[in-house]
């Protein structure tokens, strides 16, 4: 009996010790050298693993940063300039600053503005619905409303508004990682320059159809009339394929175009309410100054 106990202990100890020794030597022999700076850099990153930098995760980004000589094409949109400065200090390099951006949803087609012409009963996925047909309304560019951008967000910064059926971005939480931009099959979401106090002016429509057709399908569509282009004092607005686009860098947030737009497709967000002007009262009331 005591023999059995003894044999068991000896056998197990031998196997354990033998595997430990083998593993030790194999680990020595097959040691992979890793730059210790990769760990330091990784710790300085937000560690959200969102992929906004173009690499699969924070560790891959850290590897790329340590390997390359400069910060060319390497930027962590989540950490922003502060993180890049920390990295520059860690590695003894010059930081390259980039302007902060925020995601903006360029569609205002709530059911109230954009009548639903049919009912879709298939898979509740934007990508699938987009590949199948035009969508529940007549607009081939408008938001499908199945919330694939919401699922893509790692930061809880984008949510569907149940009333409008459109996604809304919480600016404070948005890190401009670009996951929602990639997730949207219709390219409705755009990363635009972040202005002080989260103010923004943008054309909330990406419909490139002719004015009459766009207007018929959606009351707040850009009809390509060009009035905003004429009124803009900074040449920030361009008209292409029946669609106005406001250059976020050139725009000085003067809000002249917002009043001019006949369909209220240009939105202003985060501004204080306008003073009552006797001339343009009607338009300024309807311009939707407090949609946020």
């Amino acid at each position: 009996m005591s023999n059995v106990v003894l044999f068991t202990i000896i056998t197990l100890s031998t196997i354990g010790a033998a595997s430990a020794i083998i593993l030790y030597f194999v680990a020595q022999k097959f040691k992979v050298y890793e730059d210790p700076r990769i760990d330091t850099v990784e710790q300085a990153l937000p560690l959200a693993n969102c992929g906004g930098c173009g690499y699969p995760g924070c560790r891959n980004f850290a590897e790329a940063v340590v390997k390359s000589e400069s910060f060319d094409g390497l930027y962590c949109p989540v950490g922003g300039n502060e993180t890049m400065k920390t990295l520059a200090a860690l590695l003894g390099r010059e930081a390259v600053e980039q302007e902060a951006t925020v995601a903006v949803v360029r569609c205002s087609g709530s059911p109230q503005h954009r009548p639903r012409t049919n009912h879709y009963d298939g898979a509740k996925s934007c990508t699938i619905a987009h590949s199948l047909y035009i969508g529940e309304s007549g607009c081939p560019h408008g938001c499908l409303g199945y919330g694939e951008c919401v699922e893509a967000c790692d930061f809880d910064a984008i949510h569907m508004n149940p009333e409008t059926g459109l996604p809304e971005v919480t600016d404070d939480k948005c890190t401009a990682c670009g996951a929602c931009v990639k997730a949207c099959p219709r390219n409705i979401i755009e990363l635009r320059k972040k202005n002080p106090k989260d103010r923004k002016i943008f054309v909330s429509c990406i419909n490139e159809e002719k004015g009459a057709i766009a207007r018929k399908n959606c009351a707040v569509a850009c009809i390509g009339c060009g009035k905003c282009v004429k009124v803009c004092p900074y040449d920030a607005i361009t008209m292409e394929n029946n669609l106005a686009y406001i250059d976020p860098v050139k725009c000085r947030l003067c809000r002249k175009c917002v009043v001019e737009c006949p369909t209220h497709a240009i939105l202003e967000i985060g501004f204080p309410p306008r003073k009552e002007k006797p001339v343009a009262t009607e338009e300024s009331e309807g311009s939707g100054s407090n949609i946020s």
Partner: peptide, 27 residues
């Protein structure tokens, strides 16, 4: 004559083996 220690012995060997495969594969 210690067949009863089969389970624990096998577990030990499998664990060591997986570690080994991991180290070698990494390199």
């Amino acid at each position: 004559g210690i067949e009863f220690a089969r389970t624990i012995t096998f577990i030990l060997i499998i664990a060591a083996l997986v570690q080994l495969v991991e180290i070698i594969l990494k390199k």
